[in-house]
Amino acid sequence: MTSIVAYRCQGCGHTSTIKRLRCSKCRGRDFAEVKLEKGVLITYTVMNVVRPGYAKPLTIGLADFGEGVKALAQLAINNPRVGMKVKPAQAVLRKIENRALLGTIFEEA
């Protein structure tokens, strides 16, 4: 199962998908990786103007993975709805010439 990696502070437990050198809550410097597997869609948009190399239209959304941890990713979902369950999946994020950038997106859970 594909998952999103998050970083849990070993000092206070605060968790974020973003890697910082110091915890935003307690300034601790030790983190352990945790896996996020189920989220709920908070908001999304379908973009008709995209940056070079991205599919058009491009749907992106913000999902809540619990404990206040959120992640933003492309959605491989035709009719997204706020409140729907999503799960991470691997996909090509961007293609420039023949070089593809691989990453984690969300699909319907």
Binding site: I18, T43, V50, R51, L62, L72
Partner: peptide
């Protein structure tokens, strides 16, 4: 498209890789 790319240079790489633009963040 190029302007959207230049303006989006302020975004965090984790989010930039996903293709976000400033208009997309505002729309959400």
């Amino acid at each position: 498209e190029k302007t959207a790319d230049i303006v989006a240079s302020f975004t965090h790489p984790v989010e930039r890789d996903q293709g976000v633009t400033l208009p997309a963040l505002v729309a959400m």
